[in-house]
Design a protein around this nucleic acid. Structure first.
Lengths: 123, 123
DNA sequence: CATCGGATTCGACGTTTGTCGAAACCGAGG
DNA sequence: CCTCGGTTTCGACAAACGTCGAATCCGATG
C-alpha cells in the first residue's frame, strides 16, 4: 500500500480524455492543482523544456540519451537527473535497449496541460 | 539600456499569434526555452496554479485579492508573493482601484504555452 | 570472465524557493 | 491629520533544487 491508487488517476488517462476543462472556463479544484503542478514544475527549467521538446519532436517518437546529452553544456549526470524529473512527472517514458536508453513523450499528460491552458473558447 | 528589447518579444504578442509551433512538431530553440521556462515554473506550484485558475475563470475577467486570499490556508503575504511571481512571469496583470487590487489573466502567454504543449496534429 | 562505454545513482555544494510575522505602504473615512 | 483595512515588502529560515565529479550499474564484446 505504498502507492495509493488515487494518486495516478489523472496521469493514466488514454490521452484523448482530458480530465478538466480549461482553467479559464472553470476554477480548478485543489486536488487537480496538487496533481498537475509537478508537471508544470518539471517544464519550468530551460534544460528540461528543451529536453522535452527534443523528445516530443523526435522522428519515430523516441530518442536516445546519447543523442540528447551532446546538445547541452551541462554534464551527463545532470541530464540524467533532469530526465528522471521528467519521468517522475509523468511526461516521458524510458526504455532500455542494449546499451542505450530511449525516451519518448507521454502525450496524454501534455494534452491535459494544453487543455488546461487553452483560453475560453467563447465565440 | 537596462532592458534589452529582445527579452520581451515572446511575451508581448497580440495573443492570436503564437510564436512557436507545438514542441512535438519542431524542436525548440534554446532562446525560446529560456524565455518560456519561467512561465511554466510559475505554474509549478499548487497554490499558484489554483490562483491562476481563479483569476482566469473570474467572472468579468478580474478578481480582487481579497477574494483570493480566503480560499487558501497560507498567509496573506504568501499569497501576495505568489501573485508577484505570476506577475513577473507575465501571466497576470494587476490594477489598484481604491483600497483593492484586481488581477486579470494575460491570455497571450497562456496561449503560447498551450500551443507549445499541443500534440502534433498529424492525421 | 574481464573490460569497455553508456546511463544512472550517490554525496556534496551553493542557490533558489515557499513560508511566516513584522513592518511599511496606500487609499478611504472619520 | 490620524486611524483603519487591504496589500505589498522586508528579513529570516528550513526545505528543495541544479549542478558537479565519483562511484555504481548494466549490456555488449573481446
Amino acid at each position: 500500500m505504498s502507492k495509493p491508487a488515487a494518486s495516478v488517476n489523472l496521469l493514466d488517462q488514454p490521452a484523448e480524455t482530458p480530465c478538466c476543462p480549461p482553467m479559464a472556463v472553470q476554477r480548478m479544484e485543489q486536488a487537480t492543482a496538487l496533481q498537475l503542478a509537478p508537471a508544470f514544475k518539471a517544464l519550468g527549467d530551460p534544460v528540461r523544456l528543451q529536453l522535452m521538446s527534443m523528445i516530443a519532436s523526435a522522428p519515430g517518437g523516441e530518442i536516445c540519451v546519447c543523442d540528447l546529452t551532446p546538445s547541452f553544456e551541462v554534464s551527463g549526470s545532470t541530464i540524467s537527473h533532469h530526465l528522471k524529473t521528467l519521468r517522475d512527472a509523468g511526461l516521458v517514458d524510458a526504455e532500455r535497449r542494449a546499451s542505450w536508453v530511449y525516451y519518448r513523450a507521454r502525450p496524454g499528460l501534455m494534452l491535459q496541460l494544453a487543455t488546461l491552458l487553452t483560453p475560453a473558447a467563447d465565440a
